[in-house]
Amino acid sequence: MCLAIPARIVAIAEDGVTAQIEVEGVRRPVSLALVEGCGIGDYVVVHVGFALSRLDPMEAERTLALFAEAGLTGGAAS
Protein backbone atom coordinates (compact mmCIF):
# COMPACT_ATOMS: atom_id res chain seq x y z
CA MET A 1 0.00 0.00 0.00
CA CYS A 2 1.01 3.55 -0.58
CA LEU A 3 4.18 3.39 -2.61
CA ALA A 4 6.37 6.25 -1.47
CA ILE A 5 10.10 6.82 -1.44
CA PRO A 6 12.44 9.40 0.07
CA ALA A 7 13.81 11.89 -2.45
CA ARG A 8 15.89 15.05 -2.23
CA ILE A 9 14.42 18.42 -3.16
CA VAL A 10 16.68 20.03 -5.76
CA ALA A 11 14.56 22.99 -6.87
CA ILE A 12 11.48 24.88 -5.73
CA ALA A 13 9.48 27.12 -8.07
CA GLU A 14 8.50 30.67 -7.18
CA ASP A 15 5.04 29.52 -6.12
CA GLY A 16 6.76 27.68 -3.25
CA VAL A 17 4.71 24.60 -4.00
CA THR A 18 6.03 23.05 -7.20
CA ALA A 19 9.36 21.36 -6.61
CA GLN A 20 11.76 19.06 -8.40
CA ILE A 21 12.97 16.00 -6.53
CA GLU A 22 15.87 13.77 -7.43
CA VAL A 23 16.79 10.16 -6.76
CA GLU A 24 20.04 8.94 -8.32
CA GLY A 25 19.84 11.32 -11.27
CA VAL A 26 16.12 10.78 -11.89
CA ARG A 27 14.16 13.99 -11.47
CA ARG A 28 10.45 14.58 -11.40
CA PRO A 29 8.11 17.34 -10.28
CA VAL A 30 6.29 17.01 -6.94
CA SER A 31 3.91 19.20 -5.03
CA LEU A 32 4.90 20.55 -1.61
CA ALA A 33 1.32 21.66 -0.93
CA LEU A 34 0.86 19.09 1.86
CA VAL A 35 4.03 19.79 3.84
CA GLU A 36 5.45 22.80 5.60
CA GLY A 37 8.89 24.26 5.96
CA CYS A 38 10.70 22.16 3.35
CA GLY A 39 13.70 23.59 1.58
CA ILE A 40 16.21 22.65 -1.10
CA GLY A 41 18.38 19.78 0.10
CA ASP A 42 15.70 18.34 2.37
CA TYR A 43 14.56 14.79 1.85
CA VAL A 44 10.81 14.26 1.58
CA VAL A 45 8.74 11.09 1.32
CA VAL A 46 6.87 11.27 -2.00
CA HIS A 47 3.57 9.54 -2.80
CA VAL A 48 1.48 10.03 -6.01
CA GLY A 49 3.36 13.22 -6.84
CA PHE A 50 3.03 14.79 -3.38
CA ALA A 51 5.55 15.18 -0.58
CA LEU A 52 3.81 13.90 2.57
CA SER A 53 6.51 14.12 5.20
CA ARG A 54 9.93 15.64 5.69
CA LEU A 55 12.48 12.99 6.49
CA ASP A 56 14.31 13.62 9.75
CA PRO A 57 18.02 12.84 9.24
CA MET A 58 18.70 12.54 12.99
CA GLU A 59 15.92 10.00 13.45
CA ALA A 60 17.14 8.11 10.37
CA GLU A 61 20.56 7.77 11.98
CA ARG A 62 19.03 6.73 15.29
CA THR A 63 17.08 3.94 13.60
CA LEU A 64 20.18 2.67 11.82
CA ALA A 65 22.00 2.70 15.14
CA LEU A 66 19.16 0.62 16.63
CA PHE A 67 19.69 -2.03 13.95
CA ALA A 68 23.38 -2.18 14.71
CA GLU A 69 22.73 -2.35 18.45
CA ALA A 70 20.23 -5.19 18.09
CA GLY A 71 22.80 -7.03 16.02
CA LEU A 72 25.36 -6.69 18.79
CA THR A 73 23.08 -8.04 21.48
CA GLY A 74 21.79 -10.90 19.37
CA GLY A 75 24.96 -12.06 17.69
CA ALA A 76 25.06 -13.33 14.13
CA ALA A 77 22.45 -15.78 12.85
CA SER A 78 23.65 -19.18 11.88
Binding site: V23, F67, A70, G71, G74, A76, A77
Partner: peptide, 24 residues
Protein backbone atom coordinates in the same frame (compact mmCIF):
# COMPACT_ATOMS: atom_id res chain seq x y z
CA UNK B 1 19.77 5.64 -2.99
CA UNK B 2 20.11 7.53 0.27
CA UNK B 3 17.62 6.57 3.00
CA UNK B 4 16.77 3.41 1.01
CA UNK B 5 19.89 1.31 0.51
CA UNK B 6 21.03 1.59 4.15
CA UNK B 7 17.75 -0.05 5.15
CA UNK B 8 18.31 -3.00 2.78
CA UNK B 9 21.72 -4.07 4.05
CA UNK B 10 22.08 -7.86 3.98
CA UNK B 11 24.82 -7.99 6.64
CA UNK B 12 22.71 -6.03 9.12
CA UNK B 13 19.76 -8.26 8.22
CA UNK B 14 21.68 -11.36 9.34
CA UNK B 15 22.55 -9.69 12.61
CA UNK B 16 18.95 -8.64 13.22
CA UNK B 17 17.85 -12.18 12.36
CA UNK B 18 20.22 -13.41 15.06
CA UNK B 19 18.79 -10.94 17.55
CA UNK B 20 15.23 -12.06 16.79
CA UNK B 21 16.14 -15.74 17.09
CA UNK B 22 17.82 -15.07 20.44
CA UNK B 23 14.62 -13.50 21.80
CA UNK B 24 12.29 -16.36 20.87
Amino acid sequence: MKYIDEYRDGALARKLAGAIAAEI
